[in-house]
């Protein structure tokens, strides 16, 4: 009875995993196929892999685009985490006049649909001469991500007992030192979670990127979308590009996975 139940459970888990992982597998396989193999019906699963798609990708503008994406995403993440944690800490630990209103206002920024601000931003950045510059996207992304970071991190700071900070104050540390040496390390699960979300969000963003960049600061999602040419879609190139683009997030996630699990469950301390 027990064995059957267990077997059934495993079978179900495998099925779910297969459904979710199949598209990924498809992309991975596609990136190693030639054009002919790609379009074969029925699809082939056994073939001689080629690196041609990757070579093509690296000969195009794609490396530049990935570099742009990384510059923008990492800058956004660093700025959002820094400003976000400071702001969140302030909201969590100090009584501020109109604190509730301010928090709602900050959160509401996150709910702003990007489409509503594309045109105004375009006009603003054109006037400032910042179109097709990294800084333009970094600023816009920070707008969304800082509000998200404040909202998530405040929850984590609220969880840290006040007594821990008071103990450090009595131990002779100034408030900024208390923040750096006690509060921040204890909120690291929250920091990791927030960082992952900021990174993914800024790497994936398309609408603002496509409107505010043309060539110099063009990001990878925009670049990949342009693979659709008059001669049809180069699926091989697109797949290879996607795989390369996916790597940074995967690597970062693996590095901070322990924190992430605790962060996702809004983990209590210990």
């Amino acid at each position: 009875m027990k064995v059957l139940k267990r077997a059934l459970g495993i079978a179900l888990a495998l099925l779910v995993a297969a459904v979710f992982l199949f598209p990924l597998l498809w992309v991975v396989l596609s990136s190693f196929k030639t054009k002919l193999e790609l379009l074969a019906v029925p699809p082939v699963f056994i073939f001689k892999p080629t690196l041609q798609n990757y070579i093509n990708a690296f000969r195009s503008d794609f490396p530049l685009q990935v570099r742009n994406s990384l510059i923008i995403a990492v800058s956004t993440t660093v700025i959002s985490i820094t400003l976000g944690s400071l702001t969140a800490y302030g909201f969590s630990r100090y009584t501020i006049k109109g604190s509730d209103f301010l928090q709602f206002w900050i959160l509401s920024l996150r709910m702003l649909p990007a489409i509503a601000v594309v045109v105004p931003f375009y006009l603003v950045f054109r006037t400032l001469g910042l179109l097709d510059r990294h800084i333009a996207l970094i600023l816009v992304y920070c707008l969304f991500n800082i509000s998200f970071a404040v909202w998530v991190l405040k929850g984590f700071f609220d969880e840290i007992p006040l007594e821990l900070e008071e103990a450090a104050m009595l131990d002779g540390y100034s408030p900024p030192q208390v923040f750096l040496k006690v509060s921040l390390p204890l909120a690291r699960a929250g920091l990791a979670t927030t960082a992952i979300f900021c990174l993914i969000q800024s790497l994936n963003e398309f609408l603002l990127a496509v409107s505010l960049t043309t060539r110099v600061a063009e990001t990878a999602p925009v670049g990949l979308s342009k693979v659709q040419t008059l001669m049809g879609v180069d699926w091989g190139l697109l797949s290879a590009g996607s795989i390369v683009f996916m790597l940074p997030v995967v690597i970062f996630t693996v590095i901070v996975r322990n924190e992430l699990v605790r962060g996702m469950s809004f983990g209590r301390m210990r």
Binding site: P161, E163, E166, A168, M169, L170, G172, P185, L186
Partner: peptide, 20 residues
């Protein structure tokens, strides 16, 4: 005086040990 400048030590109810 700032708490840290008073040369006072405290034992808290929850002990307030730094978990990290």
């Amino acid at each position: 005086l700032y708490p840290g400048d008073r040369n006072i030590a405290m034992i808290f109810q929850s002990y307030a040990l730094y978990p990290h």
